[in-house]
Design a protein around this nucleic acid. Structure first.
Length: 605
RNA sequence: CAGAGAGUAGCUCAGCUUGGUAGAGCGUCUGGUUUGGGACCAGAAGGUCGCAGGUUCAAAUCCUGUCUCUCUGACCA
């Protein structure tokens, strides 16, 4: 836990100045008993029900006061840690001319994900999904000497991506709030190098998500369309997350499924056949499970042969073979064959003779191609696989017998080309097995290298008066996604349970019978005391019955809760509990209210 | 992008098959009784039935087109 305000004895989640005090009746918190029927995930349901967000369009939301308060708290933590790590905040436009994307070809590579529009003059513009191009272009004109490096600049801004399918409230939006940072270097190593900044960002991200009170993992990840060499994702651990993470309990190795390596697996071509190769008619069976059932086996008894094409080529084919119940990992295929690959376009693959849906490794005998096989696809003596002929499969396929020529000519490459899964051998600890869990990606850091600087001509003269491409890194945090990921992992059946640091308010005062003499005065007094100690306070001053107010309090999820009523005032007491505590509030001395709140901060945060 | 579904009151939905005065619950407002985990009584407001055409004496309902939203998959810094 990082302590920014070390000179203060206040809890770091509290405000360093007086906290604010707001009355429920004077802000907008439209809670509802029922969620919209289309809300499926708990963060979506609770954010709508508790009055944090309202939908405007597909993947577009209003951030109501509660959500905005939390978003500002997350942003504040991000700013503090980024600034502390030596980055400078600035702001780029969200709107930009499409021409900026020409040099890096991301107007094409990013595809439909890029929001584009046309102005009155017919000029095409884009709404920024990330800002590598804008900042690289900026740097081309703004940085002229090697002496100005390293640099690290960041912004917090709305980003736009035309997601094919926005979903789950703020988890996958078309407009969302993101912090993006870009660093510039002339070398990899040393204090001014990319690696040093990357490590600092890794640490800053660890600080940020720790301070936000999140249960998260930093995992090795694929660089994806942004490109670059190394990358880590920061994932909120959450059972219903969209991403799968694999980790080794012994070595601590943790990686996204896209990236996770699999440890050593024994294999051999030399397995004696046990069955004749037999052809079967298998028409109209979509899906490997149906075919397997028809052939009297299961998916694990079949070979799946996926046809790829080397990117940028007309007809350099690659067949990747994995066991039927495994998934091919495109990145691993790329690494295995040494060039980029893409799924073969069906039409052209068919023209080249591939019976798509019925392809087998035996295609190598008739067509020029690269064959890569996963070790697990070699283990059995007898496989069911395609017959390289429409509507037909074979059973009894055996590598040593049916692929003898290819094996003899050493034409088969064996490599780890599938997604790792739970139970696979760990790549970092002998004998250990990988375990799987789910997560929501909230941060991603990349070593970009010179991909953008080369494409856009960002170079400077170095000390030796030689022109040198600038080395870049980029670092993103999904601010609005962090908010919903937090709820996704911290709620119960009654609503949200905020960690102190990013809750819209630290404390809520529920006033019972606010119209009775002196009751609101008492609430205001307590609020002032709490505020003086840095607590942001929400007073539920609504003239409503206690039941709905308790229900709303649970829904909204403010961490600390006081209950003031005529009864307790008379007794010189007050009720107090944390949102996360089970059961009813406990009665404490009114005089000890602030003390209790401060003590509770220590135990829950 | 493929498949499926939905647009009727602020929210959740019924009505549509078989065309004939626009409905319920929750919420809101007024008055009253209440006041410790989403109360009760009485009353009220609130909807060009997504939009545009068409059929018909008559369309929320039938037909055509269109827009929007959602779900599953594909895709996804």
């Amino acid at each position: 836990m990082s302590t920014i305000n070390a000179q203060s004895d206040r809890h770091t989640a509290l405000s360093t100045t007086n906290g604010c005090v707001h009355n429920w009746s004077q802000t907008l918190i439209p809670t509802t008993r029922e969620a919209p029927s289309d809300a499926e995930t708990s963060s979506h349901i609770y954010m709508v029900r508790a009055g944090y967000i309202r939908q405007v369009g597909a993947g577009i939301y209003n951030y109501l006061p509660l959500a905005w308060r939390s978003l500002k708290k997350i942003s504040a933590i991000v700013r503090e840690e980024m600034d502390a790590a030596g980055a400078s905040e600035f702001l780029m436009p969200a709107l930009m001319p499409i021409e900026l994307y020409k040099d890096t070809k991301r107007d094409v590579d990013y595809g439909n994900l890029l929001f584009t529009l046309e102005d009155r003059h017919g000029r095409r513009s884009a709404l920024g999904p990330t800002h590598e191009e804008v900042i690289t272009d900026l740097m081309c004109g703004a940085v002229t000497s090697y002496k100005q490096f390293p640099l690290n600049l960041y912004q917090i801004q709305s980003k736009f991506r035309d997601e094919a399918r926005p979903r789950a409230g703020l988890l996958r939006c078309r407009e969302f709030i993101m912090k993006d940072a870009y660093s510039f270097h002339l070398e990899l190593e040393g204090d001014a190098g990319l690696n040093h900044t990357y490590d600092k960002m890794y640490q800053a991200y660890t600080n940020i998500f720790t301070r936000c009170g999140l249960d998260f993992s930093a995992v090795e990840a694929e660089a994806g369309p942004i490109g670059g060499s190394a990358s880590h994702e920061f994932m909120v651990n959450c059972a219903n997350g969209e991403d799968t993470i694999l980790y080794c309990p012994e070595s601590g190795y943790t990686a996204n499924v896209e990236k996770a390596e699999i440890g050593q697996r024994d294999w051999s071509f030399d397995v004696a056949p046990t069955e004749e190769l037999t052809k079967h008619h298998t028409p109209g069976m979509p899906g490997i499970d149906l075919v397997a059932e028809h052939l009297g086996t299961n998916a694990a008894g079949m070979l799946k042969s996926i046809v790829f094409r080397r990117t940028g080529t007309e007809n350099k084919w690659v067949i990747a073979v994995v066991r039927g119940d495994h998934d091919v990992n495109e990145g691993k295929v790329r690494d295995a064959v040494g060039t980029g690959v893409e799924m073969a376009p069906e039409k052209e693959a068919k023209e080249a003779g591939f019976a798509i849906g019925y392809v087998s490794p035996r295609m190598i005998d008739s067509t020029k191609l690269t064959l890569v096989v996963d070790p697990d696809a070699l283990a059995a003596a007898s496989w069911a696989t395609g017959a390289d002929e429409n509507d037909h499969h074979v059973t009894g396929f055996n590598w040593s017998r049916d692929m003898a020529d290819a094996i003899a000519q050493d034409k088969i490459k064996v490599a780890d080309i599938r997604n790792a899964q739970a139970g696979d051998p760990s790549p970092r600890a002998q004998g250990a097995k990988l375990e799987a869990r789910r997560g929501i990606e909230v941060g991603h850091i990349f070593k970009l290298g010179t991909k953008y600087s080369k494409a856009m001509g960002l170079s400077v003269l170095n000390k030796d008066q030689k022109k040198q491409d600038v080395i870049m890194g980029c670092y993103g945090i999904g601010v609005s996604r962090t908010l919903s990921a937090c709820i996704e992992s911290a709620h119960d059946d009654n609503g949200i349970i905020w960690p102190l640091a990013i809750a819209p308010y630290h404390a809520q005062i529920i006033v019972i019978k606010p119209k009775d003499d002196g009751v609101m005065d008492e609430a205001d007094k307590l609020a002032a005391e709490l505020s003086a100690h840095g607590f942001d306070v929400l007073i539920d001053d609504r003239d409503d019955r206690p039941g709905p107010k308790f229900k709303d309090a649970d829904l909204v999820g403010i961490p600390l809760r006081f209950i003031i009523s005529p009864k307790t005032i008379e007794a010189g007491q007050i009720e107090f509990k944390a949102r996360a505590d089970e059961g009813k509030a406990e009665l404490i001395d009114r005089a000890k209210a602030v003390e209790a709140a401060l003590a509770k901060c220590e135990s829950i945060a």
